[in-house]
Design a protein around this nucleic acid. Sequence first.
DNA 1: GTCCTGATGTGCT
DNA 2: GCACATCAGGACA
Length: 209
Amino acid sequence: MKPISPTWTRDKLAPLPREYYARPTLEVAQDLLGKYLTRVIDGEQLRGTIVEVEAYIGEDDPACHARFGLTNRNRVMYCEGGFSYVYFVYGMYNMLNVVTEKSAFPAAVLIRALEPVSGLEKMRELRGKDRVADLTNGPGKLCDALGIDTSLSGIDLTSNQLYISNGDVGEFNIASSGRIGIKEGTERQWRFFIEGNRFVSKWDSENRE
DNA sequence: GTCCTGATGTGCT
DNA sequence: GCACATCAGGACA
């Protein structure tokens, strides 16, 4: 699979516009690969390239948080695309999602792994780990490394404290697989990752397409 | 390297 | 009361 890569902004660090997120979720999910995710803390930029994502789409998706309809927790999934959805699981970990599609249609893309680009020392401090390879190679880990928790849920990704921009990577291939860590809906090949990237969280060969 | 287990808080069917 | 879009650490090889 080849990436879909239109030029959304001239500046590789300018936040992507609202229209970027208001598209079909599977399209946005694949297109997010290779983009920069930037978190600003105390004026410092913590930045990584998105290398692994998963799509969660609509009330009919048995793995989606919206499968039981609108609740307090998943409310932000029902808003228009381009906002963050951060939730807390296993009593310990935060998960970062990007809301997609139009208002009232609940869908989001889970950011599962990043390749660190800048602010590595701050990430080490926040994670309490030294090895670069352990900083952002999983959805819980990257939230730790970027200091992301539920207080950042519902913020506008076209603003400048947490945003996504064009990025600066070369050619790559996109691979897909079933989603990880869920029990239902595993047959949907809605996990996408940059083939061969060392920061991808898992390479379960049985999950590979 | 692999496999297994325990930790832990929140929202809900 | 229980399930949960995970991770770290220990046992073993």
